[in-house]
């Protein structure tokens, strides 16, 4: 089927099998290898991307639901020249070991901070449930707090206690279309 959506800020149209998971559309059809295959069952989080600002596990997201959606992958998050605060924090804290799960954690964290720039440890525990086998969790927690600092410094947000998280998400993705959910 023919699908038009926004990928990392650019309009894309492609012809693909609607049952094909977004993961493989990204990796094999669009050659964006930053989104990883870990389990194919939405259990590990290595394939996490953003769809309309929400963290989504792309291995369980059929391509047919892409129509009109706004997708961000790790490649669209930041660059070495202009890293996203989460990437900046990941570098400062030297988080990765093997590195394979890290894109998913970075994307999940970015989605969290877009809605809650002052996450508590409990917030982190609830929201970030990806799997890392190397055990980089200790540094990840530090990096998430550091990224939150950087996020707050970059855009002094209204008091999180009075700001609805959902508004923060919308602010981060002003072009998000009315999602069919």
């Amino acid at each position: 089927m023919r699908i038009t959506f926004t990928l990392n800020g650019e309009a894309r149209t492609l012809e693909t099998d609607g049952d094909q998971p977004l993961l493989w559309v990204l990796r094999d059809e669009l050659d964006l290898k930053g989104t990883k295959f870990g389990c194919g069952r939405a259990a590990c989080g290595a394939c996490t991307v953003h769809v309309d600002g929400d963290a989504v596990r792309s291995c369980s997201f059929p391509a047919r639901y892409l129509e009109g959606r706004v997708v961000t992958t790790l490649e669209g998050l930041g660059t070495p020249e202009a890293p996203h605060p989460v990437q900046q924090a990941w570098i400062e804290e030297i988080v990765p070991q093997c590195g394979y799960c890290q894109p998913g954690f970075i994307m999940a964290t970015a989605a969290l901070l877009a809605k809650n720039a002052s996450p508590t440890d409990d917030d982190i525990d609830r929201n970030i449930v990806n799997v890392c086998r190397c055990g980089t969790y200790v540094r990840m927690r530090r990096a998430i707090h550091r990224a939150a600092e950087l996020t707050r410094a970059a855009a002094p947000a209204p008091d999180p206690a009075t700001s609805a998280p959902d508004e923060a998400a919308e602010a981060a993705h002003p072009d998000a279309p009315e999602a069919d959910r």
Binding site: T35, P80, I94, P96, Q102
Partner: peptide, 15 residues
């Protein structure tokens, strides 16, 4: 710092 840090934080196709 790890010399593969950038590749791993920005998603280079290294695996």
């Amino acid at each position: 710092p790890r010399i593969d840090l950038e590749a791993k934080v920005f998603g280079a196709p290294i695996f």
